[in-house]
Design a protein around this nucleic acid. Structure first.
Lengths: 205, 205
DNA sequence: CCTACCGATCGGTAGG
DNA sequence: CCTACCGATCGGTAGG
């Protein structure tokens, strides 16, 4: 079975192939640990051909960051969660994060590379894309946020994201040869602790 | 004012100078973004002289990681906090973390480099040094942990560390040109949310 | 602990 | 989009 017409113009497919290869390499080797020759090999294109699509190695990283940053999974998860009360909404978002990130814990490496190797140089541009989505999420929080403790809504959102990041960061650091008490049901415990943290407790029954 | 005798043998001072230089460079440029020549220049020693103290570039990173990992600040902070009830103990530890890390947010970059550029290869060795300290901290938790929700103590410790990491990670990502609602009093809000998360609420007064 | 050097590889480009 | 190449720099070492 062959496709007579490529789904997108040929050049566009090559561009995506470069981004896919670079993404995979950056995640496992970092930016300076990845060479243009590795990217060209992995993408199945000659070294010189890359420069028809990107002006520099950093331009590739910038595109990978903008188009594949984990926030692109976390924020839509929050935006698409559909529930009346905020606890159910956040629990559903937590499940969606689980689905998209739990099997790919190195996805957050992109955040680390941006901080360590670029001093967050590209974050202003990325935040300009992200913050508009954040606005509608915060509105939703305030609409269904009856039982929330009186923290600023941006703090509640930031600490939710921080909880996810802290989970994956400690998960990777702990590895699989550490005492199991540090790992068993940790994903569920983390969301429970977070929710107790932001929700006003039910009156004692 | 000159010192007649160096406080430590000459060779030992050079070794420490190499580690200090390498640490500073790794934090700001990453491992592969730092060259041996940069380290030699910053340490004030010839390139070849480094190899009298370390067998390879990775050996330098390993020593930096083991001797300067942020856990070396967080865990002693927890171990030295001295209070009857767990809330006061954790709040004091939080303050100590603030003192040692808040002005040097790039200290956690060492953790990221280890994860991204080394796939946490050195963590087993590091955890062997860390986990014994953890044992005594957990014992303290259980002694003064009357008001704790029934989470496993290792989870409570892990989520405390994760809260600190998530705070600094989102702090660096947000930068200083984002809406202030995401940043105002965030450090205090984070510990409050965490403590509400793990403590059984007081009966309504 | 330094000087001088090794082969390999780097990001990027000219020219077609 | 490829081939062939550029100068610069890499980690590491021999020899003293």
């Amino acid at each position: 079975m062959t496709t007579d017409l490529p789904p997108t113009p040929r050049g566009q497919n090559t561009r995506l192939e470069i981004l896919r290869a670079a993404h995979a390499l950056f995640l496992t080797k970092g930016y300076h640990g990845t060479s243009m020759r590795m990217i060209s090999r992995e993408a199945g294109i000659a070294l010189g051909g890359i420069y028809n699509h990107f002006n520099s190695k950093e331009a590739i990283f910038r595109s990978v960051l903008i188009e594949s940053h984990p926030y692109r999974e976390i924020l839509p998860a929050l935006a698409s969660a559909h529930h009346d009360d905020i606890e159910a909404l956040l629990r559903q978002a937590w499940t969606l994060i689980d689905d998209s990130l739990n099997n790919r814990p190195d996805l957050i490496n992109l955040i680390f590379i941006e901080q360590v190797e670029f001093h967050s140089r590209h974050m202003p541009e990325l935040l300009n894309l992200i913050l508009p989505q954040v606005g509608s999420i915060l509105t939703r929080f305030s609409e269904s946020g009856e039982g929330l403790r009186p923290y600023p809504l941006p703090i509640i959102l930031r600490s939710f994201i921080a909880t996810a990041l802290g989970y994956f960061l400690t998960r990777n650091a702990l590895g699989e040869d550490t005492p199991p008490e540090f790992r068993e049901n940790a994903f569920e415990h983390f969301i429970d602790i977070y929710l107790h943290g932001i929700l006003i407790p039910e009156p004692n029954p």
